[in-house]
Every structure is written in structure tokens, then in C-alpha cells.
Amino acid sequence: MHDLPLWLYTWTMSRVLVAFALAYFIFVSCSPAPPVQTADGLRRILQLATAEMLCHEVVYRHDESRWFFLTYGVRETLFSIDLKVQAGFDLSGGWRLVPDPEHQTLRVFLPPPRVLLIDAVDTSIREYFSAGEPLGYLRLRALLKDRTRELEKKAVEQGILDQAQAKAQIFVEGFFKNLGWSRVQVEFKT
């Protein structure tokens, strides 16, 4: 070993390193993926949705990575998407019908309205352009998660719960009058 010239020694050992690095990457790329959980989560609910709010967002994302002077992993995309907020009543939290057949009156007690669902409507995506490597579905969904995070607060500020209550009042009256009640009183718990 002592008799080897420095350049030959370094050259040989760098080849060994490259071999190790190659083996490392093969090991990493062949490692099994995490287990996929596909268990069913089916349950009974009772939710009455009476109002939906649609918002439209234009999203621009630019990613790039630099390692010293080397730029790689450039991704750029511009797209728009609709975000949906749904409000209504969780009836499993308590609703009650109090009939008064003598006066042909029905009193309907409903829980307070609340936001039932917030969703980025994936099928409404309109992509204007994408450049570089594709964004990837995990990055896209993480991005959409961020966009929906503050939407509930905005929707409540813009009066979606009032809308849900007003529409429920009209709907519930109509629904029970259709079933033969001449007077229907709708009351909301607070």
C-alpha cells in the first residue's frame, strides 16, 4: 500500500467510494414503500347541507433547488381552482319534531348551523402552464391543503352560516307543508 503513488491510491479509493455510493442508491431505491392503509371507515351520519359557497383561486408555484452554483429541480406552474365550503346542520347532534295535531302545527327544532365540509374541487383545475419537472400530486395536494386551511374562517365571515340558516328555514317549512302540515315553526338552538 505504501508503495502506491498518491494519485493511483486516491483514484482507486474514489472508485471504491463511487461503488459504495451506487450500492447505497440501489439500496434506497429498492427499499419497500410504507404500508398502504386501505381500511374502510364507514359510519352512519345525519347531515343536512343547505348552503354552499364557491370561491375561485389562482395559484402560482415556483420551486427551485440550488447546491452551490448548480440549479436543479426547477418547477413552475400556474393554475386556477374552485374551493367549496358547505354549511348546514349536523342532525345527529340533536333535532326534534314536536307535533300539535289539534292546531295542525309542527315545531321543528334544529341545531345551530355549522361548516360541514371544505374541499378543493380537483375537477375544476384549469392549468395555464407548467414548466420544468411536473409538480407532483403530493406537492399539489399539500398546496391545496394550505389553500383550504383559512377558507372556513373566510366563509363564516362572509355569512355562510346565516345563509345556511335562512335557506333551512325556507326548505324545512316547504318540506313539512308538503307532508300535510299547515303551519310549521322552525327554531334553531343557539
Binding site: 343547505t50 375561485h56 362572509q158 335557506k167 326548505f171
Partner: peptide
């Protein structure tokens, strides 16, 4: 964000 596109009633 476009503030609001539509408010839809549903039942």
C-alpha cells in the same frame, strides 16, 4: 382569491 363565486342553496 376571488372573494366569492357563488352561494348555492341545497337540501
Amino acid at each position: 382569491t376571488t372573494r366569492l363565486k357563488a352561494v348555492l342553496g341545497s337540501a
